[in-house]
């Protein structure tokens, strides 16, 4: 797995995620990185489509349903406590 620090360099994060507990994709997976009107993720250049998100700012995504995982990611981007979001990602769809 890889730790990717995404600086809040744009007003949006600019990713789409699918998955969560009790779905076919048990951990959130990046399905889109917005390139036109690039968001922070695009500017960062290290997140890739297909990567599975294991942790956000050290908080595990395991066992979280889709809306909960999406809410945590959104809140990590929104908070003014940090000027970045740390993603622990893996290229592989880890079995649970």
């Amino acid at each position: 797995s890889t730790l990717v620090r995404v600086a809040k360099s744009a007003t949006t994060l600019g990713i789409a995620v699918e998955g969560g507990a009790n779905t076919r994709q048990p951990l959130p997976r990046i399905v889109t990185i917005q390139a036109t009107r690039g968001g922070s993720a695009h500017n960062c250049g290290q997140l890739k489509v297909g990567q599975v998100i294991l942790e956000v700012n050290g908080v595990s995504m395991r066992g979280r349903e889709h809306r909960d995982a999406a809410r945590l990611i959104a809140e990590a981007f929104k908070t003014k406590e940090r000027d970045h979001v740390d993603f622990l990602v893996t290229e592989f769809n880890v079995a649970l």
Partner: peptide, 16 residues
Amino acid sequence: VREKRLTLPPSEITML
């Protein structure tokens, strides 16, 4: 386990 997995629903997609 594999059969159970196949019955799980697809996830929604959220833009962030």
